[in-house]
Amino acid sequence: MAINRAYVYIEVDAKGVRRTVRQALTAAAVIAPGAEIIAVVASAKGDADAAAASMLKVAKVVQADAAVASSQAAAKAIAQIVKAQGPGVVVFGNTSLGREVAPCLAQELGLPLVPDVTSAQVVGDHVEFVRPIYAGKAMAKVKPLAETFVVTTRANAFLDNNESGAAPVEKATVALTADDQKAKVVSLVQRDTTKIELTEADAIVSGGMGLGKAEGFKQVEALADALRAAVGASRAAVNAGWVDHTQQVGQTGKTVSPTLYVALGISGAIQHQAGMSSSKCIVAVNKDPEAPIFQVADYGIVADLYSVVPLLTEEIKKVK
């Protein structure tokens, strides 16, 4: 069996089609090799989003012709488009919106959902996915039990290798009732990107006593800026009065589990570890090679902070 069509649900931010969605496009090609890839736009600001999507290298962009104000309405709209265009897999980026629309769509179409996959492989007549469970402490290999299905892909699991293109935009008539849009957004406050909540942050840079002085936190903040990360601190740094206690990570502070945790000058006493050891990737910079932080870190640099951090900040700026 070959899958003829792969739909990718488009989300757009200020910089164009979101990176996770572009990565989902890569996934779509892996899941359905040779299939026609269709970008689906079902959003509140349809035209603008469709214009952004048309710059992708896809077969076409299909845009719902109605304004879509809720996840469930988006699912209804996509379902109607899929029914009209012909069966295929539907791929979402595992974003906050994607993981809300995807299961609604799966239910709407009566399809399996394979959420948050990190890899996909066609094996004979089916596709096998790997997805992390138990917060990454185990990986499950799963296969959907239907010819077509809905998938969401984990951020950064697939490379964004989409070249730019000029896809035609096709409008599709969708019929949405008031019942489909019961949940109404009454206000949206743009996120303050300058201050990221520790517990919500995807990346965190924390500083400890190894910084030696309060001014050392400027280095921490600079690296955090480059990584678009939140700034955390060890208890000792908080007690020294260098930063506010709301930034304390640890047993008696905040418990965090970001994708990336960078510990600068933090020895890693258990009280600190209790608050951050479940982070996905931990980087430690400390001049003491015996510091316990290196036992929980994935990558470590044993060096003076002030010789490493400015370089790291510059290097990160280059890749981000």
Binding site: M209, R235, A236, N239, A240, S267, A269, I270, Q271
Partner: peptide, 14 residues
């Protein structure tokens, strides 16, 4: 032990 390690560290005497 924990308290003294913290104390010595915060007194910058480690």
């Amino acid at each position: 032990m924990t308290m003294f390690e913290d104390g010595v560290k915060e007194h910058k005497r480690q």
